[in-house]
């Protein structure tokens, strides 16, 4: 059984399912609007562990660049 981890700690190429989103109301609302919600699948395209992380939600063709601060608020269950 895998344990969920912070998105900020996942490696490039890893996939998973979003488990929980913390963070203030503002940050939370923005993440929800752009498509981060519990149950959505997420692929880490690029995480250099220094600067923003690039992810793909579901099978969308747009990728999303996410600041580290936000990536630390998202819990993901690695696949």
């Amino acid at each position: 059984m895998n344990k969920s981890v912070y998105l900020s700690l996942m490696n490039s190429g890893q996939k998973g399912t979003i488990q929980a989103i913390d963070g203030g109301e503002r940050a939370h609302a923005r993440l929800l609007d752009i498509g981060f919600y519990e149950g959505e699948t997420i692929t880490i395209i690029e995480n250099s562990f220094n600067g923003p992380i690039i992810v793909r939600l579901g099978s969308a063709s747009n990728k999303i660049a996410l600041g580290m601060g936000l990536a630390q608020k998202i819990m993901v269950l690695p696949a």
């Binding site: 923005r30 690039i54 747009n62 999303i64 660049a65 996410l66 600041g67 601060g69 936000l70």
Partner: peptide
């Protein structure tokens, strides 16, 4: 204070 974090779509 803290600055607002980046969330931005990267279109193809």
């Amino acid at each position: 204070g803290k600055s607002s974090p980046l969330v931005m779509e990267l279109p193809p």
